[in-house]
Nucleic acid binder design. Sequence first.
DNA 1: TCGGCTCACACTTTTGAATTGC
DNA 2: AGCAATTCAAAAGTGTGAGCCG
Length: 475
Amino acid sequence: MQPSHDIKTNFSIPPPSTAASGSDSFLQSSVRMTLEDSDLWKSFHEIGTEMIITKPGRRMFPHCKINLSGLLPYAKYIMLVDLVPVDGFRYKWNKHKWEVAGKAEPQPPCRTYLHPDSPAPGGHWMKQPVSFLKLKLTNNTLDQHGHIILHSMHCYQPRFHIVQADDLFSVRWSVFQTFSFSETTFTAVTAYQNGKITKLKIDNNPFAKGFREQGTNMKRQRTLRTQVCPEKVQKKLNKDDEEAEELHPAEFRRPYYEGYEDDEVGEPKTKEGCPVKEESYSPWGAGQDHSHNIRTESPLSTETREIYNTEQLVPGPASYQPYRFHDFSKSPSPPSPPSSGSPSSGQPSFESQPLDVATVPDQDAKPAPLEPLSSSCPPSLPSAHHAPQDYAGVLNMAMAPPATKPGVISHLYNPYTTEQGLGQWNGPPHSQYGSSGYPAHHLHSEYSAQSMHHGYHHGNVADWSQYPLFSYSCW
DNA sequence: TCGGCTCACACTTTTGAATTGC
DNA sequence: AGCAATTCAAAAGTGTGAGCCG
């Protein structure tokens, strides 16, 4: 599976010929990323990946793990992960399949997970797979631990950001590249809906080993909490029967995945389970000139997948920050179903419009009409990046003001304790849950809704200025 | 009434400090 | 004394299923 990939910069410079404007850009463009455990991800993806989210926070499984190449060995990079809504819908699990249940809820505060090794030299990132094992998901909008906040029954997709920067303060002026993998799309749930997912997780996650043995499960049934109601037992048994029936191959495949396959015209199905030679897809591999491709469609669309490495350097004028970019004008209709392929049915509006931060994006979602979906993120894998929701954000970084840049802190929302300070960015990774305050590797950006997808499904330069990460007001 | 969420549970793996051996 | 290997307890992570709640 090839990642979609984009480059943007926070430079406030004119956009023209950015990609070729400098050697740095060229070097940047050689960055390649592949997803580790791709087969496992695909296994889940075919069924409809579900990620448990809990109040205290839950790790992802499979967890995000990537391989990097093409970085400058001695240049420092920062690795970030955030999760963006795939579409503007809320789903429900009904009769063995996912159905649209309505509009998506307003997005909670966006948080970006910073890899604890950041910043680190390119050589460090390339010498071994980069794991985001400790990334945690929560449904607690008031979470104080820095976990990534998601809504249950909503679809999300992880995005990986690479920023060449010596420290976080340099990020603003740095080029950063974004990658995403369609097979990592998942539905956030508070309890597993699809029994097949449960089984797959138990089979693959070592922590769930205890649930593999039936004896253990049987033991668990005698809970002190209650005396089991016979009716409920029967109900449960019936449910189990349904789950068993669900295992029928004919129903196994998620329609949305089928649609996804349909969209993957340029991605031979035989590739499934086989290592992808990304060089063959990378425009960079053929020379830098190829990196100037201007996308007009979602990176997840066929064409874009073919050239997933298409890069764009886009100016990110600070003036954009105060705005909430909404693209409602292009979303009078619900997000296209997965099979619709190119999500950006029209050129999105690149105009920035000031919106009330608290504004809930009018997604104009029309959930009901959608055909029954049996996938976890049924409708929109291909359209993963054109959720109608607004997604402008502020990176709420927590750090002590550097001596060289006094006053910066005044722009920052600082969830960290002062003693953590900037040092944690430069030193070895802290334990994820430091005793003091906020985990340093969780960056926070807020947004009223998410629509960063905009950046994916069209190549318009201006569009990238809407990128929610590292918004200027916080720098 | 029902779907989604929370929590305690039993179990496993991971982590890191303490101990031991060289 | 210093370092590496081993041991072991605590912490963390996992899905389950009943009850709670809106």
